[in-house]
Design a protein around this nucleic acid. Structure first.
Lengths: 221, 221
DNA sequence: AAAAAACTTGACCATTTGGTCAGTTTTTCG
DNA sequence: CGAAAAACTGACCAAATGGTCAAGTTTTTT
């Protein structure tokens, strides 16, 4: 028994250095890939960002391509885990608003993840095509089905539910990906502020709920 | 008289080769930059795409950086020229719908221009910061002012007009930039089709007009 | 027609960069 | 403790790539 316990603890301990370093490298890599793209990111820059010698990066990940894929996989997993919500029984207005809040939180907390993903999409998504056309496609179809049911039950106004989802993604992710644009237009010289995200979140929620007939228009119209 | 006529024709002819080649190179460059990013694009790949030897690219544009800036300038000009619309006297619903149609047309016709621009934004917009915080900022403030007037006149429901503009940009440009994602989700193995753009355009118009109280919700809600 | 200007391009070069490796140090574990 | 496994890293290399150039060709101009 002791032996078994030790082994499992050991296995844990064994990988500790490895795990810590790999996480550190992936965190640095996400930042550098977000700021420079795949080809623009150098393993040397990632090493410096991680505070490790370059050879160390290759010791753990082999090639830049493999490191990039590891970062992408991590992001895909983050995306999927943030998706589960939206169930058949939920309240439409509350559920949509919560989903939007969650997406905006992600844009604020992990802008680099969003940027790396966006970059891959712009390039034609060569490395995540199966994810897009399998998991993500299935998710969209499942959730838009739920929304369609809500509509059939008269719980919200008729809309194109797939495009409703697309719109939510577009409006929320833009605050991570194109932050530089909104920052410049709003005149925020030190980047977006917390209030900007709140205002944006509310504006998106209003837009979506009005679109679904889930919130009354202000009087006088 | 003949001399003068000849001269002007000549001057035209003089620059003809130059102009043709530069346009050809810029067209090729836009495509390659869109597909590979600044660092990922090689002058050699641009040369092949343009059907010219690599030295020719450098003969006309000097460095890759200068060529990239020329492409960016071209895109900024395209953006600005597509902006003029939206006047004080126009009909709100018609104007917004037209603006959205125009933006979607641009996403269809010049997806690579949009992608290069998006890429630059993701990278933090180091080369177009002055454009963003001058021309574009001014345009947004002017147009959101007009929309605010429409609201004050009771011609549309109260909304955050700047964010209304942001939303329109996000929802329309995503069809160029992230085409790969929508294509995969919709199961279009040969890329998006004309009907996809029509459906998307209508969905965006509906969303925006409902948000502004410019179109009645379907009955039963 | 001939000089001048503009254009063309194969060959070449310096630098950057992804990746390797061998020798060393640190950690693990019986 | 001591041996084996894992981790570390400076030095190095081959390939890719942005950019140059000199020798030519074509076009323009007088």
């Amino acid at each position: 028994m002791d032996t078994k316990t030790d082994q499992s603890l050991d296995r844990n301990a064994q990988g500790r250095i490895r795990q810590e370093n790999m996480e550190r490298i992936m965190k640095a890599a996400e930042k550098v890939f977000a700021g420079s793209g795949f080809r623009g990111a150098t393993t040397s820059a990632i090493a410096i960002e991680a505070g490790l010698p370059k050879a160390n990066i290759h010791y753990y990940f082999g090639t830049k391509e493999k490191l990039y894929r590891a970062v992408l996989d991590d992001i895909v997993e983050l995306w999927l885990s943030s998706f589960r919500e939206i169930g058949e029984m939920d309240d439409p207005a509350e559920t949509l608003a919560d989903y939007i809040r969650g997406k905006m939180q992600l844009s604020r907390d992990r802008p680099n993840a969003s940027k790396v993903f966006a970059n891959e999409l712009i390039r034609g998504a060569p490395r995540i095509n199966s994810y897009l056309s399998m998991e993500l496609k299935d998710w969209v179809e499942e959730k838009s089905g739920i929304l369609d049911n809500w509509i059939a039950q008269g719980r919200m106004a008729p809309v194109d539910t797939k495009h409703l989802i697309f719109h939510i993604w577009a409006m929320t992710q833009t605050w991570a990906d194109f932050e530089a644009q909104w920052s410049a237009i709003l005149g925020r010289e030190n980047g977006l502020e917390a209030t900007d995200f709140e205002t944006a979140t509310n504006a998106i929620i209003t837009t979506v709920l009005r679109n679904c007939g889930l919130v009354p228009l202000p009087p006088g119209n």
